[in-house]
Nucleic acid binder design. Structure first.
Lengths: 355, 355
DNA sequence: TCGCGGAGTGCAAACGTTTGCAGGAAACTA
DNA sequence: TAGTTTCCTGCAAACGTTTGCACTCCGCGA
C-alpha cells in the first residue's frame, strides 16, 4: 500500500505469497527460473505491498551499485548539459543512476573526485579531463573508466572529431579570403584543445594562412572577452575559438573595442550550443554531437562491465554550421583592404603549453 | 596499497591493527569512543590498506544511503546549474552525494522520478515542480522532500522572493514612463510564474499601468521567440519575461520583426543568468540567489533528517539589476510618441491558466 | 520397472557494516 | 580498601538481499 511507514522487504512478500524468499528474489533477478504461475502470484503480492528491492542489500552482495559517476569540468558550461541529459536517460533505461560532479575546471580536484566516487559507483565517466594521461591510467586500475573528450590508448574512450571540425573551420575562413587567423586555445590540459591546435595549424599551412595561437585560456565567456585585445593586437582578420562560449565572449569583447563581427573580424566557435543560434550575429560554429557522446559513454561502460578489457574507441563526426559571424576577409576573392588590421605581432602570441 | 585488486574490508584493517572489527568501525563512525592511540594505529593501517568503508553495507544497516536526489525541470536551463553546483558542493562537505535528474519540463514524469529515487536516497530536493500541490504532499509521505521554488505549507521549502522582484521590475518600467506592459508567463504549473503574475498585476495597478499576460509558455529561448509577434500585436512598450532565457529569445524575435530593444520595446528578464551580461543589449533583470537556494535546500534536508516535522520555510531576497535592455517609454517624463505601438488588443491576450 | 534429467523450489551461507550489551581495567571517591 | 564510575574494547546479532547446492516431483525412454 501507498502510505506504509516501514518499507516492505522480500520477507513480507514471501510470507504473503507463501513461497520462500529465494523464490521472490528470483522472481525479480532471474524470472525465467520461476514457474510463471508462482511468478505472477509473487508479483501481485509485491505490487500490493509496494515492495521495491533494497538496492543497498543487493549492492552488498552483488558488488554492483547500479550507479555511475559522471565528472565534468563545469556543469554551467552549456556544452555539458545535453551530454549529461543523454547519459542520464540512457542510464535510467538500464536501471542505472548517475552522479554528476563538477570539478570547476580545476585539474587538481579531479583525482580526489574519482577516488571518492570509486567505491560507490560501478564506473566513472570522465568528461573532458584536465589531468595527465598517466594519472588517468592509474585511476583506471581502481575503477572502470570511460574517458570522454580525450584519446587514450588502452582505455575505452569517446571523442568528437574536433580535428576534422577545426580543419573545416579553417578551410571555410580561407575560402572567405582570410590569411591572418588566430586560434583562441582552451584550458591547459585539454586534449580537445591540443587536437584543435594541431589540426588548425596543419590546415592553415595547407591554405597558406598564418595561424597565431593564443592561450591557454579559461573556456568561458569571460575567457573569450579577456583575449579581445590580444586578438586586435595580433592583427588577424579571423578567429577560431576553442568553444562557443569563448567565441561569444570574444565577440562581446571586440564590440567593446569598437570592432564588429563579421565586418571587421570573423569568428568561428566550436560545439554549437543552443545559445549560438540566439546571439547576434548568429555564430558560425562546429557542431559536436554531445548527446550521442553521453549515450555512447554509458553504453561502453555498461557493456564493458561484463568482460572487461574491451577498450573500444569511438570517434563521433563533427560538422561546420555556417551562420552570420563569418564574412569575407581581406585576401584574394575579396577586396584587398584589411580594414583595421595592423601587422602581426608574433611577440604577443603565447605558445601553447604542452600537456 | 594503490593497486590492490580486491578492496580492503573492515576485517583486513582489524587483523592488521590487532583489534576487533567493531573498534575499526567505531574509529570511523564514532571516533570519540576509541582510545586516541588505538585510533591512530587503526587509521594508519586503514590508510596503508587503502580501506574505504563500503557504503552499501553501511546503508544496509543504518538505513541511510548518504545520497540525495535532486530533480530539476531542465538541466539545460542555465538557471539550474549554479543551483546544482552549490547543492552538490554543500552535500559533499557533509559526505553526501547528489543524483541529478531532469524532467524535461514534463509534469507527468516528476512523480515517477520521485518514486524511483525514493528508495535509494535519504531525501529529494524538488526544484521548480510542475505537479500539483496535493501530489507533492502525497509524495512527501513516502520520502523526505524539500521543495524549491514553490511555497507549500507543511513542507520545508525554499523560494526566491520573485514577488518582490516582479514589483521592482514593474516599478522600474513605470518610472521610465511605460504604461502598456506585457508579462510573458512561464510554464503551466509553475508556482514562480503564478507569483510573478500576481505581484506584477498588483504593481501595475498601483502604477496605473496596464498589464497584459501572455502564456503559459515554454520557459526557453524558443518560447520567448515564439511570443514576439503576440507582443507586437499587444501594442505594449515594455515586457517582463518569466526568465532571462525567454527575454533573450524574445529580444531576438523582436529584432527579426524589425523592432529593437530598448528603443522600441523595453525588456526585463528574471534570474540574472551569466548569459544576460553578454547579450546585446545587456539584459536588465531580477537577480535570484540560486546558489544560496541550493545550499539552503541541502541544509534543510539534512537538518530535518534528525527530528522531522521541522518545516522551515526560507525566502531569499531578489534584486533588480538595471542594464541596457530597458529605456524610456512613451508615458509622462518622456516624450509622448509611442513609436510603433498600436492599440492594445485584449483579444490577443491569453489568460493565464490556473494551477 | 528403473534410471535419468529437467523444472521448480527451499535452505543457508554469504556480503561488510553498525550497535546494544557486557566485561575488564584503570581511575576516582569515600 | 572497597565501591563506584569511566573508558575502552570485544562479542554477536542484525540489515535485506543473492546464489550455489540439494531436494522433490514429474515425465520420459529404455
Amino acid at each position: 500500500m501507498k502510505g506504509s511507514r516501514v518499507p516492505a522487504t522480500i520477507r513480507d512478500v514471501a510470507r504473503e505469497s507463501g513461497v520462500h524468499i529465494s523464490t521472490v528474489s528470483r522472481t525479480f533477478s532471474a524470472p525465467h527460473l520461476v514457474n510463471p504461475e508462482t511468478r505472477s502470484r509473487v508479483l501481485a503480492c509485491a505490487e500490493h505491498l509496494g515492495y521495491r528491492p533494497n538496492r543497498a542489500a543487493r549492492a552488498l552482495i552483488t558488488g554492483r551499485t547500479h550507479n555511475i559517476g559522471l565528472i565534468v569540468a563545469d556543469i554551467a558550461n552549456p556544452f555539458f548539459p545535453p551530454l549529461i541529459k543523454a547519459a542520464e536517460s540512457q542510464a535510467r533505461q538500464r536501471d542505472y543512476h548517475i552522479f554528476v560532479t563538477d570539478t570547476n575546471e580545476d585539474a587538481s580536484v579531479e583525482e580526489g573526485l574519482v577516488r571518492a566516487l570509486a567505491k560507490q559507483v560501478d564506473g566513472v565517466l570522465l568528461c573532458s579531463p584536465r589531468m595527465s594521461n598517466s594519472l588517468i591510467e592509474q585511476l583506471s586500475r581502481e575503477v572502470p573508466l570511460v574517458v570522454v573528450n580525450r584519446q587514450l590508448t588502452g582505455l575505452p574512450t569517446v571523442v568528437m572529431d574536433v580535428a576534422q571540425g577545426a580543419r573545416l573551420a579553417i578551410d571555410h575562413l580561407s575560402r572567405l579570403g582570410h590569411r591572418q587567423i588566430a586560434l583562441v586555445a582552451g584550458p591547459r590540459g585539454s586534449w580537445t584543445s591540443r587536437e584543435i591546435r594541431r589540426s588548425a595549424l596543419s590546415a592553415a599551412r595547407a591554405n597558406d594562412a598564418d595561424l597565431a595561437v593564443i592561450g591557454p585560456n579559461q573556456p568561458t565567456e569571460d575567457g573569450g572577452m579577456a583575449v579581445a585585445e590580444q586578438i586586435v593586437r595580433a592583427g588577424v582578420s579571423a578567429v577560431l575559438a576553442y568553444n562557443d562560449l569563448m567565441a561569444i565572449g570574444l565577440i562581446e569583447g571586440l564590440s567593446t573595442l569598437g570592432l564588429s563581427v563579421p565586418e571587421d573580424i570573423s569568428v568561428v566557435g566550436i560545439d554549437d550550443i543552443a545559445l549560438s543560434r540566439l546571439t547576434r550575429p548568429k555564430l558560425t560554429t562546429v557542431a559536436t554531437p554531445t548527446a550521442a557522446a553521453g549515450r555512447a559513454a554509458v553504453d561502453m561502460l555498461l557493456a564493458h562491465g561484463d568482460d572487461r578489457r574491451t577498450t573500444a574507441q569511438i570517434t563521433l563526426q563533427t560538422e561546420l554550421v555556417i551562420r552570420d559571424s563569418t564574412g569575407p576577409g581581406p585576401g584574394p576573392h575579396s577586396h584587398a583592404d584589411p580594414g583595421g588590421v595592423v601587422a602581426t605581432a608574433p611577440g604577443e602570441v603565447a605558445s601553447y603549453a604542452k600537456e
